[in-house]
Amino acid sequence: MTPTASAADTAPKTYAWEIRAGGLRVRVGRKKMAVDGLDLCLGIGTHGLLGPNGAGKTTLIRTLATVLRPTEGELELLGTSVGGMVDHRALRRRIGYLPQDFGYYKRFTVREFVEYMAWLKEVPKADVPGAVQRAVERVGLADRADHRMKTLSGGMVRRVGIAQAIVNDPAVLLLDEPTAGLDPAQRLRFRELLQELGRDTCVVVSTHLVEDVAAACSDVVLFADGRLVFQGTPDDLAAAGGPEYPGDSPLERGYSALLRNSGQQGGTW
């Protein structure tokens, strides 16, 4: 079954970037600014969001998923301004989001869970069974579709999470540490899926695995202390490092070089 193009797919785009942030600040808790003055433009493609622990990656992804409200600055998703007291309904229909630790209902089967998520995302009722089947097949869980969630391994649960994120054919797909818990073979398959999705979708993948970025991303966003440190292709990232910087691969050396030059204090770890 091939998905047919809807009017929304063929309508001309009236925005330059899928994600555009200007001076974005997001406060977490009482005083911590997890995202602190971020300017970022992301278009179609797979964008790897790299950064040390605590850099604010998860907060940024949650803000992009409209779960958190921006404290200051502007954020536009698919040409719609986010924040304030506006209804995000139409925008949210076109967002896919996989949180870092996502909870699920243990007694639901894979199909029931993805169906439930499709219902929450307002996928038209007639399209739900087809969309669910497609999403489950894309993550390679077709043979497990009628198994309960609690019988699945960690990697499979992760793949169900990816399936629910893509079930509504999102225009902006936000994945927070999607490769955690996947074995090497699944990770390879997942990278292929990412490349496939990145052809017509704006995919943002937060990860701390530099090799994921090298293999699957067309664009790297390096993020530290709530600020943008670097944005460019994986090759640019590799070119930024030299042999004097720590790391096992050119990308890792570029990563440490950029972080060090940005004034990140590494600490003992």
């Binding site: 998923a65 409209t66 779960v67 209804d87 995000h88 309904r89 139409a90 949210r92 229909r93 967002i95 989001y97 949180p99 630790d101 996502f102 909870g103 699920y104 209902y105 998520m117 219902w119 929450l120 995302k121 307002e122 629910q164």
Partner: peptide, 18 residues
């Protein structure tokens, strides 16, 4: 209390109607 809250919160139906 709702394990899938984080997922639900980002969906179109989240909000007053739900």
């Amino acid at each position: 209390l709702d394990p899938a809250h984080e997922l639900t919160a980002s969906t179109a139906r989240a909000g007053l109607p739900l």
